[in-house]
Design a protein around this nucleic acid. Structure first.
Length: 876
RNA sequence: GGGCGAUUAGCUCAGUUGGUUAGAGCGCUACGUUGACAUCGUAGAGGUCGGCGGUUCGACUCCGUCAUCGCCCA
């Protein structure tokens, strides 16, 4: 094996390994395997989607879980796929056609779908290729699309079953209407935005009277569809209007004045215009009072024939302007106020929605929601972080019927047929009636979420009861954004129980929302999302994966900045070089199995690094098990950099360069052992670089890292070892600190005098070579009666007084100030401990462990205090 | 209007069930290219953990309240 290059070149190795993994079939999951399954279904991105930094986060997390499970010996199954995303895709295809000068209205359904499929074939799957670039170890043979033949069958089966159970019905209702897509949309697809607008006050004349009422509205154009004016029955101003009528201006229609508690007397004038066909609240009032419903709009929200002729065909904006102008001319515009109102926007059309009366298909949700509510209550499904259960419960407890029909073409056409002779005669089935020529199929398609809500079961060709479904359902973990908790997560739980009688997953991990440095959500439309490919190019894919994971805490938003990816890049560089260094010090034919190592006989540094290694594995697993990926990354980063590189590798150098062959062999053995573990643990986060490095360190003729065994802790903690090592480090750091303070150049060594007891002397003597090398000292003298050399700098470390003679270099005044500062600190700390130890309540109630810890600490600090005072005395 | 979350070093953030001399990265200061790494090393400065009150022997951590910011739902 050739030695490692000086710097890691990500672009050279990434594709190589991905192809290798695919060739070896490592990603494919076998439904007939005896291994315990571990399954994830990908949140299927829009078929025409592009990879965003959000996807990088989301899919890296899934890959981490899957790769870890695979290494743990489970049958790891990650099912990928894409979503047809009905309305989102259709609106893209429509604008694409518009650019070509083609109007959707001029096309037949078949022609339009041909364009849509062409478009899907052309742009679809971009994101799939991008996910491969990211390194995702999905089972690509199981890739699904929500409009695949099998998948469609599942969607239609669900519809038919629910219809037959009476859970789906057709109704003439007020729905959220998107005038751009000319389709109904669900409540969840309406985005409420605050807008600066106006509140117009109009005068409505009372019939047979010279009086008028003043109504206030933010939507003047809807007055053309008013069918009443309402006041609060308790409003004394309007007590005498019972039975009176209003002459509605412009239209001249007569409409009643009605009384209803709903009206807020403090809003505006206390009179409210009622437009039942265009406002959900007014709709309810109208039903209650038996008012007329006048629809004044066409499907594109222009004004229709139910408005006066002069208004026909005007857009709602033009209509509004004309109403205001006409009323002003009539002298009926009382005043105009500035007003901030909340306007519902269509998520996809990005224009204000209309409340619009139409015939739609609805799903009754209350029954479906019940088992899904229980699943969360009984911890059958756990949310991470758990606080999302509150949001979930709130929505579920107030769940409303779901409008599932869309007046679109791209999607699953609703499997309902109307008899040509009698429209009320309907047929509901997957394949349609036998005499299909006498029937016409419902033209609406289903809401896209009414297909993706079946994802965990439909990817296995449900309703077929195959091996795949049995082995890989339910899944283990769902990783998704909290923004689709209602759209998708809740509804998948419902279908899981409805069709499989089982929760679709055990854990749901909600990812962080990524924002830019100013706090805006990263999105393509805002143009503030960097292209992940540029990032891969600049930092390396592994570095991006690691960096993004490190900066994303569980349950909080992330202020993303590509600068922060440098941490990842630097870490990869550090790892690479640590490996390179160890590699350089390993002979070509060296094999770790040939070294006999008795762990009990290792020296302090070696036992220490193994102890730290074991602890790291434990802590790392702990953090991953609780889905704290950022902390897991941190644990590994800290061990690798601070323990292994900064200390162990520096110590190993001493051994590599010594003439003691045996000790060099052990150092090689320990270094390789650490590196193998680090590479294994890091592999799920950064698969490419670790696989590349693994080839240099793996046991000869053993397999690839991706399928190697997950590192296990060896229960090798040793408190005494850890504390001894920390004492040794403290001495070394104290000497370094003195040297740095006194500006001793690194190339120059110093002498060291230590006043210490016999045990400490023995301890230091054992580790003399370490201290000499790591602290740059030559002659070390130790004794309990040692006198401080004149012109020397002082430090107290672990009860030992360290002196470094520095002729003419020591600024006595500065040294004194430094020591006094420390004395002051110690006094403060001792004061706090004295306070506790003299508190009877503390002594009685605090656990013994805490008390003894305080006492030991007190002892240590007092000792340091005494020594500092003595040394200060000498300086005087 | 209802709900959820956040507030810790100049910046961006960690901080398991209440007990640490409160941590990291970046930035900053000083020194340093000794053959893994300047995408680096060594040493250092920097915080009364948003305010007030409470529970407790003990609060960054638990409770209440207020303030500011963000999100969701009506």
């Amino acid at each position: 094996m050739p030695k490692l290059d000086k710097a890691y070149n990500a672009s050279l190795v990434e594709d190589k390994w991905y192809e290798h993994w695919i060739d070896k079939n490592y990603f494919s999951a076998d439904p007939n395997s005896k291994k315990e399954p571990y399954t994830i279904v990908i949140p299927p991105p829009n078929v025409t989607g592009m990879l965003t930094v959000g996807h990088v986060l989301n899919n890296t997390i899934q890959d981490v879980l899957i790769r870890k499970a695979r290494m743990e010996g489970k049958e790891a199954c990650w099912i990928p796929g894409t979503d047809h995303a009905s309305i989102a895709t259709e609106s893209k295809v429509v604008s694409m056609l518009q650019e070509k000068g083609i109007n959707k209205e001029d096309l037949t359904r078949e022609d339009f779908l041909k364009y849509a499929w062409e478009w899907k074939d052309k742009y679809g799957g971009i994101i799939i290729r991008q996910l491969k670039k990211l390194g995702c170890s999905c089972d690509w043979e199981k890739e699904r699309f929500t409009m695949d033949k099998d998948y469609t069958k599942a969607v239609l089966t669900a519809f038919v079953e629910l219809y037959n159970k009476g859970l789906i019905y057709k109704g003439h209702r007020l729905v959220n209407w998107c005038p751009v897509s000319k389709s109904a949309i669900s409540d969840e697809e309406v985005i409420h935005k605050e807008k600066n607008g106006f509140l117009w006050h109009f005068r409505y004349s009372i019939k047979d009277s010279n009086d008028f009422l003043v109504v206030a509205t933010t939507r003047p154009e809807t007055m053309l569809g008013d069918t009443a004016v309402a006041v609060n029955p308790n409003d004394s101003r309007y007590k005498n209007l019972v039975g009176k009528k209003i002459i509605l201006p412009i239209t001249g229609r007569e409409i009643p004045i009605i009384y209803d508690e709903y009206v807020d007397p403090d809003f505006g004038s206390g009179c409210v215009k009622i437009t039942p066909a265009h406002d959900p609240n007014d709709f309810l009032i109208a039903e209650k009072h038996g008012l007329d419903f006048i629809n004044i709009m066409n499907e594109d929200a222009s004004l229709n024939k139910n408005t006066p002729k002069a208004y026909n065909g005007l857009s709602r904006e033009e209509g509004r302007a004309k109403v205001i102008k006409d009323l002003e001319i009539l002298g009926l515009l009382e005043k105009t106020e500035n007003y901030i109102n909340k306007v519902g926007y269509s998520e996809r059309g990005n224009v204000p929605i209309e409340s619009y009366l139409s015939e739609q298909w609805f799903m009754r949700m209350t029954e479906l929601a019940k088992p899904a509510i229980d699943a969360i209550k009984n911890d059958k499904i756990k949310f991470h972080p758990p606080h999302w259960t509150k949001t979930y419960n709130h929505w579920m407890d107030n769940i409303k019927d779901w409008c599932i029909s869309r007046q679109l073409w791209w999607g699953h056409q609703i499997p309902v047929w109307y008899h040509n002779d009698d429209k009320t005669n309907i047929h509901v089935s997957i394949d349609g009636p036998v005499d299909i020529e006498n029937w016409t199929q419902e033209s609406d398609v289903l809401d896209t979420w009414a297909s993706s809500w079946l994802w965990p079961i439909a990817v296995h060709s449900w309703p077929e009861d195959g091996d795949s479904l049995r082995k890989f359902y339910p899944t283990n973990t769902l990783v998704t954004g909290p923004d689709i908790i209602f759209f998708w997560v809740a509804r998948m739980i419902m279908t899981g129980y409805e069709f499989q009688n089982e929760a679709p997953f055990k854990d749901v991990y909600f990812t962080s929302l990524l924002r830019d440095e100013t706090g805006k959500k990263l999105s393509k439309s805002l143009g503030n999302s960097p292209d992940p490919f540029d990032l891969f190019e600049e930092y390396g894919t592994d570095a991006v994966r690691f960096g993004v994971m490190l900066m994303s805490p569980q349950g909080l938003d992330v202020l993303f900045s590509s600068d922060r990816l440098e941490i990842g890049r630097n870490f990869m560089n550090k790892l690479w070089n640590a490996c390179r260094f160890v590699d350089m010090n390993i002979p070509d034919d060296w094999e770790s199995q040939k070294i006999n190592v008795d762990i009990k006989k290792l020296d302090l540094a070696e036992q220490w690094i193994l102890s730290r290694l074991s602890k790291t594995i434990d802590e790392y697993n702990f953090q991953l098990d609780r889905f704290h990926f950022n902390e897991a990354a941190k644990v590994l980063y800290d061990f690798t950099w601070n323990d292994f590189c900064d200390w162990y590798v520096e110590i190993a150098k001493i051994k590599f360069y010594s003439t003691n062959f045996k000790s060099a062999e052990i150092a090689r053995f320990i270094s390789v052992k650490c590196l193998r573990t680090i590479l294994g643990l890091l592999h799920p986060f950064s698969p490419f670089i670790t696989e590349e490095l693994w080839q240099h360190f793996k046991v000869k003729d053993s397999g690839d890292l991706i399928v190697s065994k997950w590192p296990e802790p060896e229960l090798f903690y040793d408190e005494i070892i850890e504390s001894d090592m920390s004492n040794l480090k403290e001495v070394i750091t104290a000497v370094r600190s003195i040297r740095s303070r006194m500006n001793v150049p690194n190339s120059k060594s110093s002498d060291l005098f230590v006043r210490c007891n016999k045990n400490q002397e023995l301890f230091l003597t054992t580790h003399l070579d370490l201290i000499k090398t790591l602290a740059k000292t030559d002659n070390i003298s130790m004794s309990s009666t040692l006198k401080k050399p004149v012109q020397s700098a002082t430090a107290v470390a672990n009860g030992m007084e360290l002196y470094i003679p520095l002729d003419g270099l020591v600024d006595l005044e500065q040294e004194r100030l430094r020591m006094q500062k420390r004395v002051f600190e110690i006094k403060k700390l001792l004061g706090a401990i004295d306070g506790k130890l003299s508190n009877q309540n503390f002594l009685e109630r605090a656990p013994e462990k805490v008390i003894s810890k305080e006492k030991i600490n007190h002892q240590k600090l007092s000792d340091e205090h005494i020594k500092l005072m003595a040394n200060l005395e000498i300086l005087k």
